[in-house]
Design a protein around this nucleic acid. Sequence first.
DNA 1: TTATCTGCAAAAGGTTTGCAACTGA
DNA 2: TCAGTTGCAAACCTTTTGCAGATAA
Lengths: 139, 139
Amino acid sequence: MENEMVVMVSEKLHQKGMRMTKPRKEALELFITEHHLRTPKELFEDISRKNIKIGLTTIYRMVNSLMEMNLARAYSIEGELRYIFCPPDHHYHFICLNCFKVEDVFDCPVKDMKIKHFKVQSHQLDFFGICEDCQKLKG
Amino acid sequence: MENEMVVMVSEKLHQKGMRMTKPRKEALELFITEHHLRTPKELFEDISRKNIKIGLTTIYRMVNSLMEMNLARAYSIEGELRYIFCPPDHHYHFICLNCFKVEDVFDCPVKDMKIKHFKVQSHQLDFFGICEDCQKLKG
DNA sequence: TTATCTGCAAAAGGTTTGCAACTGA
DNA sequence: TCAGTTGCAAACCTTTTGCAGATAA
């Protein structure tokens, strides 16, 4: 059974004239369903580990496409660029700094904040910390 | 007359055994007082333009030191890593996507937000848009 | 059929490191 | 004096690009 977010994104890509090729589909699926901040290299390794043949270049191209469409976001953490898939609606993030799992929350507390003298185009709210699973592991 | 933030940061660096050398002082001063998101290269160019001799390497080393001390933050914007000086207390940012000016605001609206199942270490709130000056310039 | 995509290898950029000379405390 | 700093050049990594063969529609 297909993940509906994967289907939605595939359709968006398709609308832009992009083809749903096998490696792209696999990369997209993993990127969307396993919601962790990853470096392109890690994404490449995770996909390769599933015995799927893919090139690092293809990963970069996919991530760049998603970034252009506002469907991914980059974080610079300890000198490394890590990417996360972002569903279309505005949301904030809980980011676990131990396992890099990311949780989306959609009821943003600063949604309608008005700013004098500043034309807001978008805003972003992130909470960094340790997720429940990692807290347990550490006692 | 010395900027008091520059003095404060200089003292912090000094406490860590770091010396306030001439190029470091100049770089620090510009980074702190001209509050724009910059790439290391831009910072290097801005300082060089003031007829101060400095190496790109020195810039990288200073930015990395400040990052380690939580006195700077990195943003990945359109594929470029840009850095901004961050004063010690928590604050949120208005970031102008045209001129990359950054404004700090210290009364954070989500200061005491509690999160179930997640141990929050820090949070970050950013507003991206166009600053007053750039709005005027564009009519 | 054909415009798009793929992976490789090479090129390009950005960042860090080694080192000998220099300098602040 | 001498530990920390500097800038250069080289090394290192990450990311992008060119291209010939493969592939979705």
